[in-house]
Write a protein that binds this DNA or RNA. Structure first.
Length: 520
RNA sequence: GGCGGAGUAGCUCAGUCGGUUAGAGCGGGGGAAUCAUAAUCCCUGUGUCGGGGGUUCGAAUCCCUCCUCCGCUACCA
């Protein structure tokens, strides 16, 4: 297969159970992966969990388990969720895997060999209780003039031995990169932020810690573990077999897209390319920082008690409804606000009433009036041609362009426009009336709709794989025809001429009840 | 404080390299139809395009200013 496409999500930090943001990012990546596979590209899609770092160590200690045990458990929740959400990743990555330690150390040695790592001392305000350094500006004044951390714990000026990465050396190379490849960081607003940050000057980065040991050991210095981001970012390489010269590395690196949340753009758009330049490794093609989902306009947090379990949403409304909602409702890249009412309303009006009902009424007419035999096309009118032209344009052109550009909401908006056109068409043609007056015309109308519905279904297979495969299966559309190119071809006559018989159609998307009360 | 983004119909938003009467969906109102998941289709919006000022033949779209909200402002991830 040609044209490889390597796509990654951020590896998720499992110091808590997965939340809606994890689901959002991973579903979006999955849709993109499925879209490219559907178009014939050879896709490699990686997600996983980032298990090192201070917080995991602290949390494990609080719970009285080892970090590894905690990681095993928490990582499992992510795996389970992704299975439930129909995520089609090729690799679920865990930074605690042994080969990952080897890869991170190889990257480290490459940066060291390039003269970009040096041992020095890290000085700063350190809170023993928080096990963290704070910037002077973050400190608050306590009673008696003592300085306190933002958490109100005492801090003291501490000096620690640490390895540093010569980030300062990469200011100009990074600025050159951003200029030469304007699409390296998307969306534009994130790019501007990064640009300004780098233009403001870069300080060398402390990249090792001696205060805890849950991480990847620095080669030759066992008392140091790598700063979590060094090893976290390396996962994109390890997943392909780095540092070995694997077939996967050759085929899929550099990555086509790192899909991440807007909060970690800096690590991916500044540190990561600098590390790679230092190590002499090709840079990924694009970093896209998506927006956050807000619960009724508010950020979800445990203290507010407004967290949402994405698995529960999937159980409540259906995986495909949730997937559709998340991509349809928000402009990818911008923050968005969601609510149970919004999910129910979107699902009922678009999936149940508009598309589901279109399929149901069309297939029912064929089932009842033609005994399940797909009707022949006799003579197409201008109305038929106009409808098919509209649907083909959307399915064959507008949606692929939008998907490829991560403009999911636009793709689905165009899709809805085509669904509306089908409903307007069926009402104008009124095949139920033609049944008595012009049976042949009725057949042509139903055949036209059948082809249109199949095309519309194929177009949203990446978004709603389960439901659409069920529909297309019921419609007798072969698996190999379920891609935007094949479904635009003349497959209908062959199918109708064969011995395929339509069974009694079943509803695709049941209407949802509005939640009586907002769950706490 | 500095830098950046945003403020468009009841709601959610699209639209800005200046140009015919500013758009969509949802909700509301009216009508049609009854094949279908009581779903669908048609009709229906007098909106100060955050306020004010300016440039222009002409601005939601460019400039200035003010107000409001949000983001970034490096070593938790």
């Amino acid at each position: 297969m040609a044209d490889p496409f390597y796509l990654t999500t951020a590896i998720h930090y499992p110091n808590g159970k997965p939340h809606i943001g994890h689901a959002y990012e991973t579903i979006a990546a999955d849709v993109l992966a499925r879209f490219h596979r559907q178009g014939g590209r050879e896709v490699r899609f990686q997600t996983g969990t980032d298990e090192h770092g201070l917080k995991m160590a602290q949390k494990a200690r609080d719970l009285g388990v080892t970090p590894r045990e905690l990681a095993d458990e928490m990582s499992g929740y992510f795996r389970d969720l992704f299975a439930k959400l129909d995520i089609s990743h090729d690799r679920f990555f865990r930074t605690s895997e042994a080969e990952h330690h080897r890869a991170s150390q190889a990257l480290w040695r490459a940066m060291e060999a390039n003269g970009d790592l040096y041992l020095d001392r890290y000085e700063g305000w350190y809170s023993i209780r928080d096990e963290a350094y704070y910037d002077e500006s973050e400190l608050v004044d306590g009673e008696g003039g003592d300085k306190l951390s933002p958490q109100g714990t005492p801090v003291e000026w501490t000096v620690e031995e640490s390895w540093f990465f010569r980030l300062s050396k990469y200011q100009q190379p990074l600025l050159d990169l951003y200029r030469e490849r304007p699409d390296f960081i998307r969306p534009e607003s994130r790019r501007n932020e990064v640009l300004r940050f780098v233009e403001g000057g870069l300080r060398d980065l402390s990249v090792s810690r001696t205060s805890f040991d849950w991480g990847v050991k620095v080669p030759g210095h066992d008392d140091h573990v790598m700063y979590v981001w060094v090893d976290a970012l390396t996962n994109y390489l390890t997943g392909l077999g780095f540092p070995d010269d694997t077939e996967e590395m050759a085929r899929f690196w550099p990555a086509d897209l790192h899909l991440i949340g807007k909060d970690i753009v800096r690590f991916h758009a500044v540190y990561w390319p600098a590390f790679l330049m230092s190590a002499g490794i090709a840079l990924p093609k694009q970093v896209f920082g998506h927006g956050f989902l807000l619960n009724r306009g508010q950020k979800e947090s445990k203290s507010l008690g407004n967290t949402t379990d994405p698995g529960e949403l999937a159980d409540l409304y259906g995986v495909d409804v949730l997937r559709y909602f998340l991509l349809r409702e928000f402009s990818f890249g911008q923050d968005g606000s969601y609510s149970h009412e919004a999910i129910v309303s979107r699902s009922n009006s678009e999936l149940a009433n508009s598309f589901g009902n279109l399929a149901q009424r069309t297939l029912s007419l064929i089932f009842k009036n033609c005994d399940g035999v797909l009707p022949s096309v006799h003579e197409r009118t201008a109305e038929d041609d106009a409808l098919l032209a509209h649907v083909s344009r959307v399915v064959g052109k507008e949606m692929p362009v939008a998907y490829a550009d991560l403009a999911f909401a636009q793709a689905l908006e165009a899709w809805m426009g085509a669904v509306f056109a089908c409903n307007a068409y069926i009402d104008a043609q009124a095949p139920w009336a033609l049944k008595k007056t012009d049976f042949k015309r009725m057949e042509t109308v139903l055949a036209t709709l059948y082809a249109a519905i199949a095309q519309l279904a194929v177009a949203v297979v990446p978004v709603m794989p389960g439901s659409m495969d069920r529909l297309l299966g019921a419609m007798g559309v072969d698996a190999h025809q379920r891609d935007p190119a094949a479904i635009l071809e003349e497959w209908y006559a062959a199918l109708a001429g064969g011995d395929f018989r339509l069974a009694k159609p079943e509803g695709l998307f049941p209407r949802l009840e509005a939640p009586a009360q907002e769950p706490a």
